[in-house]
Structures are given as structure tokens and as C-alpha cells.
Design a protein around this nucleic acid. Structure first.
Lengths: 150, 150
DNA sequence: TTAGAACTTAAACCATGGTTGAAGTCAAGC
DNA sequence: GCTTGACTTCAACCATGGTTTAAGTTCTAA
């Protein structure tokens, strides 16, 4: 039992997670070899704290818990799994970069909406007289309303 | 019934989604006013195709269906909801940018692992004689194995 | 006119990622 | 010695985002 060991409460506070999540992660095999003290309480060693940091990095990039578990199993198996881990991380990195690019593209569509809404609102400020300035989606919307409430 | 109208099969093919997902979206209120033909089949108008494109942009940026539904309801309510929609989109855009930044930071941690694994593998190629070159995580891993299998 | 493809509904089912509740144990301070 | 807080287990529950299944209808083309 090392001085750097932590209780579940301390580990949870450190990472800003509920204790229930850490118990759940252990149950899911993400924290292999997590010890217990004489009273049966979980002991988070420095290794497990480091591992948790890695797990959270993978989670924040949307790796499913099942894949994280595979990765952790390879870590436990030792250095002979290095090529497997390297391959997994390289693929994951590319998947994350792809995902980020897709989000950027989707953001472009959202920015167009923002621009249209800002124009509309500032148009309202310029003149409250011309009530008919629908365009784009709103035109489609109007025609939809014509069809449904003719 | 317009010439640009589509069946559920055509709409699904257009967006690369299963038909079941489109039915599910309608049930969840994401496709208000979706019509039926004489035989009771869904009719996807141009408005609904445009709306679906917007829905998918929001989804690809991880907006929950419940929020998308709120947005769609505001679209149906008309132009007086423009400020609400603008506010929602601005907040969402910032949330997406934040999320992308968090992913980039997590990627940095992953890149460090990749570098370590690549070093290790190329080290193996340089000399197969020195079997003890553990560092970082692997050192922690070793000490963990000492604790668990002493 | 009959088979097959394409659609319909409602309800059940599924995976993921947790959260919550009940009932109990343990160590420390009053 | 007794309460209080921090922990334990196990099972049940939950939300999200669909997918699947069963049973039935309808258009299309040979």
C-alpha cells in the first residue's frame, strides 16, 4: 500500500467523476488488477490513476468502452502487444480526425443558418414595414404551410 | 403532390439511412407535417428533404434529438421564433467548437502513446538483445504486475 | 391475376453508458 | 459504545437512439 494510493472518493474527485462511474468501469474490465484494502475498499494505485487518465482521453474521443477494454487488456498482456496497440491508436487517431472534419463540415451548414437568422433580425431592426422577406428554408417552410394549411 | 416528392425509400437512399430511422424520426417529432399519399404512404416533400439535411447536420454535431425537435418546432411556428433559433444555433456552434478542442487535446495524449509505441517497435528492430527498455506507462505497468503477481 | 417489391402500423427488442437504491460493513470521533 | 461518513455488493432502473418483427396493404410488372 503506497502513499500515493487513493480511495475511490479521491480518485473520483480527481477526475471529476461520480464514484458509481469508477465502479462501473471496473465492472466493465477497464481497471484490471484494481486492489482492495483490508476492509475490502478499492485502492487506486498510481498505475490505475495513469490508466484512468488514458481511458478518459480515449473516451473523450468517443472510443467505445469495449474497445478501451481491449486496449487495457493488451496493456496488461505486456510489451508483445505493442504493435496491436500502435495499430489501434493509429486507426483511432485517423477516425477522430475524420470525425472532427465531418463536424467542421456540418458546422458550415449551421453557420449558413446563423447568417440567415442574423440577417433577418437585423433586417427587422432596419425596417418593420416590409413583412415579406422570406428566403431559403423559410420559403420552403411557407410552401409547406401552404400545402398543409392551404 | 409535387414531382419533387419522394417515397420513404427514395429519401432513405438519398441520405444513406435505413427507412426505419426516418419513421423513427417522424415519430419523435422531427418531421412535422409529413404527408401521406392516397395509400397512406409517407410523402417526403422538398421542404422535408431540406429539413432532413438540417437535422442531419445537427445530428452529426451531436445535438440530441430532443433539441433538434425543439428547433424544428420553432421552424414550424414561423419567423417570430428567429431569435430563439439564432440563440440556439450560436450556443450550439460554441458547444461544437469546445468539443472539437477537447478532442484535439485528448488526441495529444494519444499521440504521445503513438510516439512511445513507435519508438519501442523501432528500438526492437535496432537491437533484439536489450529486452529491458520499459518506460512511462510500461514502468507503471511493471510495478503493477509486481504488486499483483509479486 | 398473381407474385413480388414497397410500403404501413404497433410493439418489442437491442446496445451503450451509465445511475440509483437497498442493505450491509467498517473506521473514527464524540 | 454509538453515530456518522465513506465505503461495499448486487440488482434494478434509466435515457438515448435506434432496429427488428409481425401482420397487413397496395402498386407494378410479367
Amino acid at each position: 500500500m503506497h502513499t500515493t494510493d487513493r480511495t475511490i472518493g479521491e480518485a473520483a474527485a480527481h477526475f471529476g467523476l461520480p464514484e458509481s462511474t469508477l465502479r462501473y468501469y471496473e465492472k466493465k474490465g477497464l481497471l484490471p488488477g484494481l486492489g482492495r484494502d483490508e476492509a475490502g475498499r478499492r485502492v487506486f494505485s498510481e498505475f490505475h490513476m495513469t490508466l484512468l487518465q488514458v481511458i478518459l482521453n480515449l473516451k473523450r474521443t468517443n472510443m467505445p468502452l469495449g474497445s478501451i477494454r481491449q486496449y487495457v487488456e493488451w496493456v496488461v498482456e505486456g510489451e508483445q502487444t505493442t504493435p496491436l496497440r500502435l495499430d489501434m491508436m493509429l486507426k483511432h487517431r485517423q477516425a477522430v480526425l475524420d470525425e472532427i472534419e465531418i463536424m467542421h463540415e456540418a458546422l458550415d451548414g449551421i453557420d449558413i443558418k446563423i447568417a440567415r437568422y442574423e440577417d433577418r433580425v437585423s433586417g427587422w431592426r432596419k425596417s418593420r414595414t416590409d413583412e415579406e422577406n422570406a428566403s431559403g428554408e423559410e420559403a420552403a417552410h411557407t410552401s409547406y404551410r401552404k400545402e398543409v394549411h392551404p
